[in-house]
Write a protein that binds this DNA or RNA. Structure first.
Lengths: 234, 234
DNA sequence: ACTACTTTCTTGGTCCCACAAATAGATCGT
DNA sequence: ACGATCTATTTGTGGGACCAAGAAAGTAGT
């Protein structure tokens, strides 16, 4: 794997990497299982500890193992998150198409998952969302407001307990933040955005699916109208 | 973002990683430019060479730098390729949680976008999907079948003309392929998968939203049952 | 002056050792 | 039997050393 391609699979580090990988599959280990200690791996592959550590760094970077200091390494499966991280969502210019694409995407995710959301939501979720939303009233800065806005929606998504969805949101964060900033003005975010979020949480608390979907959708579309006007002027 | 995951941003290695990254952007370096030597980086960040080397391993794993032994490190940008390679080599199985998360995600995207789909779909789309699906009858290999299966679903998504959604699917391709392979056996993909796809296209052609959603959802869930049983045995 | 060879320096790859810090397990005391 | 303490283990980090291969500089030959 290695990368490199330069040194090829002959590199000692790469050998340890493939060694550990085959060890995992040979032993039939899966997520959560513990890996041997570094020193054990040194002996097993006749390598120095630095070599083993560099190999572990690669595995960690690939999201295949997780290392807790002073405890040991366990197998994990965060490869999706890593892949998304690497995937450069070009955030530079937010064109109108990017805007509508991303918003449609969010609509699909957030509005579309209403049923599962209502199944899983608990009081803590609601309380936390209210807390996050309350911060909106305290901030002055447009960027900070968008940051809180984003956290609110991430908190909503997190109820689903779906790593793939959370990963996608994390990656798209820069784009979403830009979109949020575009949709806000200094006059409105402390009133409109806050009120809209509040309405969404109220609907969730009342377990009113239709109201939730309606309010969330119009919240998402609010910025869109603003953006559209601005663009059409330009 | 560092990957972090484990030790947090406070780790010396992570500090060097972020240090090098900011060094690159500060100096305005781009692909092909050379990085300082390891020993220089040691001084610059007051770290041991082991620490710097582990940091470089991370950067290499991320496809951000390329290291030629005895020569030095240069900046590269293989992040996209890296994202795909991440899964390609993998001997590891997709974990059950990853599986269910991804399938739930796909359900949300594909089943959830039924309305927009029916708005936009045209005869060409249907014809192409039928063509792709017809290839399923001709392939022998399990992997090839999954490849076609994937293309079918990508073609479905592409009707939406949403770049964000297509990008997400592209990144998730390796994972989805694995999931597809898991859900197939040599006996069924030429009959069941093909028939299920056919049913989906028929529903689309008839502009029958409910039938489309029902058939697509059960198609997505089919492999899930298979996977679940297999996992519970283990 | 130009080429070809040789030498020296540089640089990444690997290994070993030592210490710090924090955790987990064992030991001890009550 | 339970809790506090102590020890051993384990990762994180720094430092030093050597090797091999490439690059650069110097040298000799034409």
């Amino acid at each position: 794997m290695d990368s490199s391609a330069g040194t090829g699979a002959g590199s000692a580090v790469d050998q340890v990497v493939t060694g550990i990988r085959s060890y995992i599959s040979e032993q039939g280990l899966s997520v959560g299982d513990r890996l041997p200690t570094e020193r054990e791996l040194c002996e097993r592959y006749s390598a120095g500890r630095n070599t083993v550590r560099e190999a572990m760094r690669i595995l960690k970077a690939y999201g295949m193992v997780e290392v807790r200091p002073k405890v040991g390494a366990t197998i994990s499966d965060n490869r999706m998150a890593r892949a998304f991280e690497l995937f450069a969502f070009n955030t530079m210019e937010v064109s109108r198409k990017t805007f509508s694409d991303v918003q449609a995407f969010r609509d699909l995710l957030e509005v579309g998952s209403a049923e599962i959301l209502l199944e899983r939501i608990c009081d803590d979720d609601i309380a936390e969302m209210r807390m996050i939303n309350a911060e909106l009233a305290t901030v002055q800065d447009l960027h900070d407001a968008s940051e809180i806005d984003f956290r609110f929606h991430v908190r909503l998504i997190s109820i689903l307990d779906n790593a793939a969805m959370l990963d996608v949101y994390t990656v798209m964060k820069p784009v979403i933040l830009r979109i949020m900033e575009k949709g806000k003005t200094r006059r409105t975010f402390r009133t409109d955005t806050l009120a809209e979020h509040e309405g969404v949480v109220d609907a969730l608390e009342a377990r009113d699916r239709l109201a939730f979907q309606y309010k969330l959708r119009s919240h998402l579309n609010f910025g869109f109208r603003h953006f559209r006007e601005e663009m059409e002027v330009a």
